[in-house]
């Protein structure tokens, strides 16, 4: 039984208002920017003002009021409605198509590998293993290692002349295809442990008698895996998949540090392109349109995700 009572709104209100203020408002503003061209011109005037003392009286120096340089500025903003121009440009821009391709290939490389490996590791750790809690703790570290720092560390690991993986002869960062694989490998390193932890938790919740029952029915190990465990874990897989998809769409720090998006644009994901467009080249309207393109995709993932989540929050 849950309580009612007006005070519940007071408990809830600060957080709700906060989120409204800090996400809904910026998103609305961003939409505005996508439809309008905003230009600013700053005009400046140099003047000298007297320096005041604590009581607000002009300070004197050699009998004259002491002056200081001050720059006054006035900002003139002009706004023009440009309608769907930015969105049309988005659809026709080869850079955008390229970044979308990079992002998709990255997702396909990284996410299935993370879930597959995570499942295998969970099966491994579900056995009787010496020092399991220590090893399990060690596996948590990558998840919390600062992604930007991780990117730089892997830059040195993939270094092709004298790096620790140089013996493979693989052009880790100098070949466009391999560079994207390398970015995916770093992501796999960082996020397989997450998939592993979640799947392991689900595995450990499988009751012992289920195994016993399967044994009694004469099921082989393979049958046990495919006919019992996989169907049982499917909801977990789906949740992990959706979370990883949503997170992987944010990919930014690792290529920023490791490849700078290169060679060429071979490892420039969508979010990096949008960031550069907005905050390096100040094409704010177009960057906003890009952001909305990404949001549209994310909305699909969110909807799927939360359809699934409703069951957990019933």
């Amino acid at each position: 039984m849950r309580w009612t009572g007006r005070i519940r709104f007071l408990f809830l209100a600060p957080a709700v208002l906060w989120v409204l203020a800090f996400t809904v408002f910026p998103l609305g503003y961003s939409l505005y920017l996508a439809f309008f061209k905003v230009e600013q011109k700053v005009e400046i005037k140099r003047v000298q003002q007297p320096v005041l003392d604590d009581q607000g009286r002009p300070l004197l120096e050699d009998g004259q009021p002491k002056l200081r340089n001050v720059v006054l500025r006035e900002t003139v903003t002009t706004t023009t409605f440009i309608g769907l121009d930015n969105f049309r440009r988005l659809l026709a821009d080869p850079q955008v198509a390229d970044a979308v391709r990079v992002t998709l290939v990255f997702l396909l490389l990284a996410v299935p590998a993370e879930i597959g490996l995570g499942f295998l590791l969970a099966l491994l750790f579900n056995r009787r293993i010496m020092g399991r809690s220590v090893l399990r703790a060690a596996m948590i570290l990558p998840i919390f290692a600062t992604p930007l720092a991780v990117g730089y560390v892997f830059f040195t690991i993939f270094y092709e002349v004298g790096g620790p993986l140089a013996w493979t002869g693989i052009p880790w960062l100098s070949n466009p295809t391999w560079a994207l694989v390398s970015v995916a490998l770093v992501d796999i390193w960082q996020w397989t442990p997450f998939c592993f932890l979640v799947i392991l938790a689900a595995l450990q919740a499988v009751p012992d008698d289920l195994y016993e029952a399967a044994r009694i029915d004469g099921a082989s190990n393979w049958d046990l895996l495919t006919k019992v465990l996989v169907p049982l874990l499917t909801p977990t897989f789906v949740i992990v998949l959706l979370i990883r998809l949503a997170e992987a769409l944010k990919l930014f720090d690792i290529p920023f540090a490791m490849t700078g998006g290169g060679p060429g644009t071979a490892t420039q994901p969508y979010s990096m392109l949008a960031f550069r467009t907005g905050l390096r080249f100040f094409d704010l309207g177009y960057a906003s349109a890009m952001a909305y393109g990404l949001l549209a995709v994310v909305m699909v993932v969110i909807t799927l995700f939360f359809r699934r989540m409703r069951e957990s929050y019933g």
Binding site: S174, N175, P176, A179, G261, G262, P263, G264, T265, A266, Q268, R280, F281
Partner: peptide, 22 residues
Amino acid sequence: PGTFEYWDILDKNLSAAMSGAK
């Protein structure tokens, strides 16, 4: 104006050419 952006575009395309992507 925009030299940095012009050069950034050139830089990415040159890098693509040098890495064999174009």
